[in-house]
Design a protein around this nucleic acid. Structure first.
Lengths: 217, 217
DNA sequence: CGTATTCACTAGTGGTCGCTACAAAAATGA
DNA sequence: TCATTTTTGTAGCGACCACTAGTGAATACG
């Protein structure tokens, strides 16, 4: 769905991409695309979509503007690719927790505990890019795109809870939608807290309290 | 603390400001300052500090740029005054709940219920200005100013809880700081949810769940 | 070698940003 | 009436925004 975006050359079949070896015609790219993308990711993560200017991006990615546009398309395409990359590299702990733990309750517990660690991890921006990077964004499509991701996350929590209700692991009168929204709001609140200076230990204490609402322990 | 800001003439003692009557020398102002401030408040509330341009402001306030600068100082001063006004007109329900209810638990319960209503009230932006309007803000002072307000709110929740612990209304082993941070995160999550489309009923259901963590009912 | 192809760099484009100089307009005080 | 004071609208300031035309450099192909 996201491959073949403007500016990215098609990787021809055969001839696997050797890192240092040149494969295509023309002058080879002088920078590592993945490294530049990671730098853009950190910038967008820390400052958000609008507050990160193309000039900021070319500085942290250490490339010229024409190189940026040739390799990633315009600012919005670059941001979309950054969001994709963020989801794969940093934002997947929640889905993994829900998928790998035996119950919804255990999945949410792990999700909240890992959020406390992830959102305060040293050496990178605090909080969640998906929650913050398109806040107050005048480009409506960008704001809407992250909003959909957030709501999709809550929907997947709700499905996981619903599955436990269906097979009896949770009481039949459980309000899966409300419990999922509660959990999502908790995650979002934790991300905001992390941005506002809360430590990992403080977020863990908060998560501990949040888990007390679940039926059964 | 915020009076006598640049651009605002000092109200001389005596001669109370009659609304229509002119009192000072010079050409009288052709717009109502409070009305213009309210328009700016709504714009900042909806779009945030950076995404609301001075051009946007002059349009919704229905005044020219020089009038804006003469009456309110620069964009940052106007925003600070808007935040002050927001706190007085829309953001005071939490403090009131904590002050007027007999226990911390009752105060927080009322705070969360009222947040569900306030953050989804029809005819005005959803969510909380203090939580969202300076997200991803490249003017560090503005971002920091709202951050301090958020953390001050949590601190006042903590003090209210601590008071109940001190006089025995809550168990002595209650972690007031964690419970306050939990409550603050809940409020912030609810505000984000309101921005993402949650209804008042959905937020009330969420608040109901959040209240289940409190010792005693 | 020459040619085709792709990239990098310089130097901009038009547009919007926050903000203001300037002079006409509208009030008061003498 | 005339001078003073303050607000108003026009018009535009320099700075930054996202973005790109155009030229030369660096590679592969033939």
């Amino acid at each position: 769905m996201h491959s073949m975006v403007s500016g990215e050359k098609s990787e021809r079949s055969g001839a696997p991409a050797r890192s240092g070896a040149a494969r295509t015609r023309g002058r080879p790219r002088s920078f590592d695309r993945a490294t530049a993308l990671e730098a853009a990711l950190l910038a967008f993560w820390e400052h958000g979509y609008e507050a990160t200017s193309v000039s900021d991006l070319t500085r942290v990615m250490d490339i010229g503007a024409p190189s940026l546009y040739a390799a990633f398309g315009d600012k919005r395409s670059l941001f979309e690719e950054v969001v994709q990359e963020y989801g794969a590299r940093y934002g997947s702990f929640g889905d993994r927790a829900l998928a790998e733990e035996p119950t919804a309750r255990a999945g949410v517990e792990r999700m909240l505990r890992e959020a406390a660690a992830e959102y305060t991890a040293p050496g990178r921006p605090h909080g969640c890019l998906v929650i913050h990077a398109a806040a107050n964004c005048s480009t409506a499509e960008v704001e809407e795109s992250l909003r959909e991701r957030r709501n999709a996350n809550i929907a997947s929590i709700e499905r996981r809870i619903g599955a436990d209700v269906a097979d009896g692991a949770l009481p039949p009168d459980t309000d899966a939608a409300a419990l999922a929204r509660y959990t999502g709001a908790m995650i979002q609140g934790m991300s905001q807290q992390a941005r506002d200076g809360a430590t990992r230990a403080e977020l863990e204490a908060l998560a501990e309290i949040a888990l007390a609402v679940w039926p059964r322990g």
